[in-house]
Design a protein around this nucleic acid. Sequence first.
DNA 1: AGCTAAGTTGACATCGACGTCAATGTCAAC
DNA 2: GTTGACATTGACGTCGATGTCAACTTAGCT
Lengths: 221, 221
Amino acid sequence: MPAADPSAGTTAPPAVPTTERGRRMRARLLAAAREVFERDGFLEARVTDISAAAGAAHGSFYTYFGSKTAVFRALVAETMDDLYASMATRGEAGPPDGSPAEVAVHRIDQANRRFVAMYRQNTALMALFEQVTTFDPEVRAQRQAARERNVGRVRHSIEQLQRDGLVAADLDAEYAAHALVAMVNGAVHYWLVLDGEFEEERLVATLTRLWAQALGLPVRS
Amino acid sequence: MPAADPSAGTTAPPAVPTTERGRRMRARLLAAAREVFERDGFLEARVTDISAAAGAAHGSFYTYFGSKTAVFRALVAETMDDLYASMATRGEAGPPDGSPAEVAVHRIDQANRRFVAMYRQNTALMALFEQVTTFDPEVRAQRQAARERNVGRVRHSIEQLQRDGLVAADLDAEYAAHALVAMVNGAVHYWLVLDGEFEEERLVATLTRLWAQALGLPVRS
DNA sequence: AGCTAAGTTGACATCGACGTCAATGTCAAC
DNA sequence: GTTGACATTGACGTCGATGTCAACTTAGCT
């Protein structure tokens, strides 16, 4: 079939490389796709440019991916895990001895720092992700899932703090988790994607402080 | 010129209606555009459908708007003011007598309620706005401006509270304002645009509580 | 009625991104 | 060195949304 393909994949079956050569080609195409997407955005990206950037013929692209949308989905699938994994790297700096509340605040701070660092190193990709989310249901679902995982972790942490008596028991852990995640997400997205200039240290410190205080944890001025 | 028009307007000059008839046509087209956009999203929307929905000929569209992007910008320009104006309607319910802090919290709550209500009544439009923001620089600028205004208001409010000694003086008002706005924006956007089902009352209450506590204002359990 | 400017119309040309496919190349196994 | 399955190539046709334009309609004015 021809032009303008709404949303999704085409007639061509996915195709899985069998050879080493094939695997390399696919990998090159995927890398090229990422380059082009990051440079031009999803909408302006042309399949032609991707093939070219991969040093491959136009047709080769369709051997491994059914459409522009298809590569993007593959890209997301193969990248997101790494991203969120890199954030989960916990227990770096040894937790300081202190009151349980202080330890909790320190953990929040560390998590925020990791998040900002990750976002900083993948700004273009995150912007892309945000963009495609607005019109591709499948990518939206992936994003939703990622967020859900994130929120879930935060929620558990809040509930734990409630059990420990550090956070008011009548706080709605689910909605609070959502809101706090939205706060960090939104603030970081704003500064990195939309604005550009900002003091990372000041931002993280403020985020941590707001987060901690919102939960009713004591904060050292 | 021809197909796929990246970003912006075309050769055709804008065109301003002189007659009553013309003004009506333009208005009908704009309304139709909104309908179609809300139904299909920006990308899937076809200029043809807009003309049709307006009961006009295809050509008429181009008499008043240079391109799909152009109508959208016009739509945003003519709508945003109303939206944010509707939110600024303050002083509805009489502020309760109470401590200054209680009054402050009440104000925050009212603002959050207004925001959620506005978002609820214009969900489709807000989603659209978010979508186009990711690829049209001009719309992005408008969104940025709207946000800036919002943040500015919050920031002033925080600074006032600091002057009154209700909020710690060493809190970074600018970053805090950004973060809190992001929190409310993000949470509401998530529930209304991405998820769907949620308890509005529970959400607003939690948002207000987090906001107030984040600033160190006392909250009645 | 006659005139004119503004508005309206819709068939048509244009264009460029997409996806196909027949031909050609590669390489490991026999 | 021959074979054949897998991979690569790139010129080509298709398609449909966009934007143009010359003819036509409307309505205000004299």
